[in-house]
Design a protein around this nucleic acid. Structure first.
Lengths: 334, 334
DNA sequence: AGTCCTTGGGTTAACGGTTACCCATCTCTA
DNA sequence: TAGAGATGGGTAACCGTTAACCCAAGGACT
């Protein structure tokens, strides 16, 4: 049996409220002696606060509910959770995630989460996208992580794709690269924005941004051999063509992994012949490629942290879209 | 304001208990007409069950608490959670994970979890190891996932390392390989067990298991360049030595990734000159290597699923250690 | 016609913790 | 020395849900 306040009260010969005050209410009026004695007894009896009971009284549980829009499979998802968790913990809150997928829609998952009466709810997307939340949920969900709410009813935190592409492109240019090709992820919001940043950086450096080559890696079939061979044929065509690039920017680290393999096949050295850079910083991959890959790290942790801050301080500005900066991780592929 | 049963009761002109019975008690006696009317009103008012209140009444929340022994960063951790979640969902339970690390010890994290009054608690390790749980927690924790409790007080679910090593080694032998080297993870329980399975499989095939070469990849420095170069020097030594291996078994997919790079440097073809096989099936890596990697997939999902089954059926046999089989994922590196 | 069971639903008391309010007692000051 | 304020602690209501009882009405059976 779990011990409750009344057990402690009985043992200490005081009322329940005194025990409650001693253990939880920091500012409750009582003698330090009583407080200490109660704490001792609580410890002895192995008392553990019943948050369900407190939660019922307060009307909410010390939880931040997270609705994740796809099966949590990527390491990025855990980064978001860790960011949230770190910030939430400072306020004695816990993070509680539920994922969509498997035939569950937003409404039902949201209800599942709401049954636990979390203090606040966040919606997290596994990759940067625009999400259209049914109107009736716009006020239930306090913040959108890694996605933008279509009708701007909710505060959204997204990665600064344009800025990141601009930064890594400029970095390549500063490294003396003049002919940069971009093997991008097609059909994705991130890819679209990065292309804009890429072209702009080229333009600002006096290079012809409009003519720069942006080639698609296959989407959705990203794990199939087809994707593999498409990247291979792109790289082969680039390297055999009249304007050999001296740098290849990749849509993400996994694409970069394929580009490495392709460059090896055509006998090009990294970074001597061709520099390679990318987005994501999926450490397992990026740090183990040969040579280790220079890449822009996504601000997942930061988005999680900021989300918790916004939710708990309750100073969200509905409709605002905050763009968080990537971080350049320099390794030796440039 | 959230609506409660009493709001619905008032609107429907019945008592609270009737509403409760209509919405939750499947077998409660009442006319189908009343039940339907109440459900309609509940829907209309946007009623969401308050699990904190129910939890207080029942004495527990519909939660499975998970204490994870390290920062959840690997994709494997999420597989365990997914396995748990899938099975828990069938019983209307949710999974609630908290991780150690950051100066938190088992006792405090366990208390944090217990405050939510979960129905059951599991302890999950991020890699296969032996964990010594303080005696007072042995009955709090219902099952150990991916680790074995040192004093056999708790049911433990672990991967069948010996069997897996035996299987993949036999597979290599059947593929005609006779001289297999094993670049293992040193200092790890998994590595130790796999070495045993590896040697036994060789012995059973009439090869000299005792003389087989088992070389260590560096532990802990697994992300450093030092590990990189150690694997490189091992492979170089193997390939330049008098007994060139025709297969290399790797401690995990990340080691395999380095072995690929090393083999490429010494000019060996995979799988023609040397077959490569491994453990983990970290899809991002294994399916993208060139050629795609044949590897033994860890039974993380299965362990999660079984853990939930054990916890919810309450037929745990304390002290029992169940070994779950890996799954061979054939690609083209053998 | 009286008894018994079934049906449909109400009453009430918890569950554990918090909090607004109240009541003593003691100390200080006018 | 009486009144005011501080100190230490008690009382009881309440949060939303459930479960163990209770009750009334009606139909079937002896």
């Amino acid at each position: 049996m779990t011990t409750s306040l009344s057990d402690i009260a009985e043992r200490a010969g005081v009322s329940i409220k005194t025990v409650s005050g001693a253990l939880h209410g920091g500012s409750a009026r009582m003698s330090e002696q009583t407080r200490l004695r109660i704490k001792e007894i609580a410890e002895e009896l192995g008392y553990v606060t019943n948050l369900a009971a407190r939660g019922m009284r307060q009307g909410w549980m010390p939880l931040i509910g997270v609705v994740a829009d796809d099966l949590i499979t990527s390491p990025f998802a855990t980064e978001i959770i860790r960011g949230l968790d770190g910030a939430a913990r400072a306020s004695d809150m816990a993070v509680f995630a539920m994922t969509l997928g498997g035939g569950r829609d937003v409404a039902s998952v949201l209800e599942e989460v709401r049954r636990f009466r979390p203090r606040a709810i966040a919606y997290a997307a596994m990759y940067h996208k625009t999400v259209s939340l049914p109107a009736e949920f716009a006020e239930t969900v306090g913040v959108m992580i890694n996605c933008r709410e279509a009708n701007d009813k909710v505060t959204s935190l997204v990665p600064d794709e344009i800025g990141a592409a601009h930064e890594i492109t400029s970095y390549l240019i500063e490294a003396g690269r003049r002919n940069i090709a971009f093997i991008n992820l097609p059909g994705l919001l991130a890819g679209e924005l990065r292309e804009a940043g890429f072209r702009r950086a080229l333009g600002e450096a006096g290079l012809d941004g409009d003519r720069a080559r942006v080639l698609p890696a296959v989407r959705r079939a990203i794990y199939s051999d087809r994707a593999h061979s498409l990247v291979l044929s792109h790289v082969t065509a680039l390297m055999d063509g009249p304007e050999r690039p001296d740098a290849i920017l990749c849509g993400n680290d996994r694409v970069a992994m394929e580009v490495y393999a392709a460059l090896r096949r055509v006998g090009a050295q990294i970074p001597d012949d061709v520099a390679v850079a990318s987005f994501d910083n999926q450490v397992d991959i990026a740090s183990r490629l040969d040579p280790p890959l220079t890449t822009m790290a996504l601000p997942h942790r930061a988005m999680g942290r900021m989300a918790a801050d916004i939710l708990l301080s309750e100073n969200a500005a509905p409709g605002e879209v905050r763009k968080l900066a990537f971080q350049l991780v320099e390794r030796s592929s440039v």
